[in-house]
Amino acid sequence: MSDEVKRFFTSILNKVNGLNCVLISDRDGVPLLKLSKDNKFPELGTKQSFLSTFSIATVQSSKMMLGKNKQIILCYKSSTIVQLNKAPLIITFVGTESTNIGHLLTYANEVDKYLEEYKIVLEQNLI
């Protein structure tokens, strides 16, 4: 199963223009899976403090009476970060400023079926 997850996210890395790195972490920002194109992980977007900030941001943005927050897209001068809210998991994609965000988001709905294993392990550890 884990190999299947790796294969799925590696295929996203190879297909989406500009994408460099994928991270699956829990809501505290502890990484469970880290994948990158050249085994280099950009400092921005992979730090635990950065990842855990998303948990706060997604909770706050869900209070705007617009429904539950699903994803947050961050566009910086030299990088793009897309974070998906798959509670209790956070999926973080880090890429260059020209990353094809639209293409990346087409995979957002497919991600769920590959995360069941991680969700079960996390829920067992939380009890």
Binding site: K15, V16, N17, N100, I101, G102, H103, L104, L105, T106
Partner: peptide, 9 residues
């Protein structure tokens, strides 16, 4: 609108 990403790619 979701096809925008694929068309750009």
């Amino acid at each position: 609108s979701q096809a925008g990403g694929l068309i750009t790619a």
